[in-house]
Design a protein around this nucleic acid. Structure first.
Lengths: 353, 353
DNA sequence: CTGAAAGCGCTTACAG
DNA sequence: CTGAAAGCGCTTACAG
């Protein structure tokens, strides 16, 4: 590949001049600029990005560290980050890293020098120490992270309020024996959703004791837990499932057991994954705007980059919205959101508020 | 951030020695190695990736260029690439680029020097010229790309065979008036699927003339096209929809029109997106293993990197599989694939062959 | 085993 | 307007 030297030779100027041309410096005469561009074109030259980065100390790349590189969450958060990033011509260096100390350390090290900032999702507690070590070396935004890392901004989902709201909705519909199927409790989201459930129950003068069933956020665990819910005496009249994937398993188990939803038992989920509205019956759930999470993470980074003085660390909370569909048995009136005629499930009675 | 110079000073050795320690050179005494590591640890030093890249001419990064950074396709292809890449400690530099000449050129330029190889999805014809220009500067694998780019490997979905197979399935079930709803025809996948449909019809001595309806791969366009299919006289008894997203719109339109699927009209799709099995009725479709597409793309790159002599350009075709569910009205016997009890739709009668 | 030196491909004061 | 020179943070023959 041609280098700046080749172009300089071809156009009989110094490499400094070639550099100026490609940096749009005003300090180049029109004729010279022309000559350089022609030579560059002929040689297929374009400046080497990393050589540029080394000297300018800016990579124009953002590192993104996530526990998984697939699924809806990954897809949406990257989409959000990308939209905000590409306006500024920033690249995304994406890597998978669980939040174990070893793996996270390796990932952070290998990003060294290659990115201007980091967006990291590291839900495990173990991650905090590692993050603190690196926090002052590069700007970072943490996603869904409870750990307190000085200097790092965070964007988190309002899990507690979301869970509380949807359980309140069940309470308002008259349910009293409301079970919950939890996520894996070492996961922060799972813990907060459980706390939201408990708060709602407590405020209604009820106790969820004995009505909390273990799951691990997988469809399978939802199926298994649902069988235990059904066996519980007296049988709960509603279940708050801590994510939609498990709720799919729950609906399957209830169907297999010949239990009607929502007549015999109401089911609600959390996340509002795209297929939630296509389930039978369509799933009432808590909508989480992961796309926006990505956008805000990038936004915080950009704001910090523009500010000359250091900003206080910020913690942003992402609002959730209740989406009432058929699985809870309590339809709510449409309020403003016009259903599209080509969108089956909304037209069939899905509401948000 | 500490540099190699700081560590050299701290441990009273030359920067060459520090470099050797971090490159696991055997040419360092144990004592020296120890001293250097301690100093590095204290200073929080780790080698700067891009400085390393500049001198070694290897970035350990793979550039991935896709038209969209969201959705199932994106998510799965990245997952496949990542799995193959991370075994070799490779990073992913991800960027969005439509296949217009200008945008693709910009993306390729900005990757210059930052990646060791490229994986590119550029379905548009316009892309070919740009790709050819860059083909000899960096190894590349093209996804779903009809363009002939010398030196570049390709991985493509067997759209033609897949479409043909599913239309044959409808024919075998006795259907004769089979309509199709196409994707946008400047898209290669859409074109090939349409050709597959035509081939199947032709082989059965039938013509699809007048039965080809325009769509653009969106749910909405499926809804709209379905109305036109219903209005066609005589009404088709089956529709091959060129992707699952449009099929969702089709099912919605038929439901709104009070037309029963599959009794009044059979509907089949293409792609087997995750929600296909949760639709009502579950959608018969063509399964495409996008995850594998990512894996193979990375695989081709790695094979090429290991080979010392230049390899012939390779074109890999990704097999598709017919997945028979409820929407076509023709159940097939289970053959080997055991349905999981916790997986509702499979248990409810989904088969693959 | 260790270090001094050249060099990867650039940018940017500095001098003219 | 232009060029020579220093330097970004590293690696790697080369010499000892």
């Amino acid at each position: 590949m041609a280098t700046i030297r080749d172009v300089a030779r071809e156009s009989s100027v110094s490499i400094a001049t070639v550099s100026r041309v490609f940096n749009n410096s005003p300090l180049v005469s029109e004729g010279t600029r022309e000559r350089v561009m022609v030579a560059a074109e002929r040689l297929g030259y374009w400046p080497n990005g990393i050589a540029r980065s080394l000297i300018t100390n800016r990579t124009h790349a953002i590192g993104v560290l996530l526990p998984e590189l697939h699924g809806e969450f990954f897809s949406e958060v990257i989409h959000g980050i990308d939209l905000a990033a590409r306006e500024r011509g920033l690249h995304l260096l994406v890597s998978r890293a669980t939040s174990t100390a070893a793996e996270l350390t390796a990932a952070l090290r290998s990003m060294r020098g290659r990115v201007d900032a980091l967006i990291i999702m590291a839900p495990d507690r173990e991650a905090a120490a590692v993050l603190r070590q690196h926090a002052n070396q590069v700007p970072m935004v943490l996603l869904n992270c409870e750990a307190n890392v000085p200097g790092a901004d965070t964007v988190s989902v309002e899990n507690h309020a979301g869970a509380r709201t949807i359980v309140c909705h069940l309470l308002a519909a008259g349910h009293r024996r409301i079970a919950t199927i939890t996520g894996p409790l070492h996961n922060g989201d799972a813990g907060q959703r459980l706390e939201g459930y408990r708060a709602a129950m407590r405020d209604a003068g009820l106790s969820g004791e004995g009505l909390e069933f273990d799951g691990d956020f997988t469809e399978r665990s939802g199926y298994v837990a649902a069988r235990r819910v059904l066996d519980h005496v007296p049988r709960p009249t509603a279940v708050f499932v801590a994510n939609d994937h498990m709720a799919i398993g729950v609906l399957g188990a209830l169907q297999d057991a010949g239990v009607d939803v929502p007549k015999d038992i109401a089911v609600v989920g959390f996340d509002d994954i795209p297929m939630a509205r296509y389930l039978t019956p369509p799933l009432t759930t808590v909508h989480v705007d992961i796309f926006r999470m990505g956008q805000r993470a990038m936004g915080l980074l950009l704001e910090r980059a523009q500010e000359s003085r250091p900003l206080e660390p910020r913690r942003e909370l992402l609002q959730t919205t209740l989406v009432v569909r058929g699985s809870c048995g309590a339809q709510m009136p449409l309020d403003g959101e016009t259903p599209e005629p080509w969108n089956r499930s909304r037209a069939a009675g899905s509401t948000r508020r």
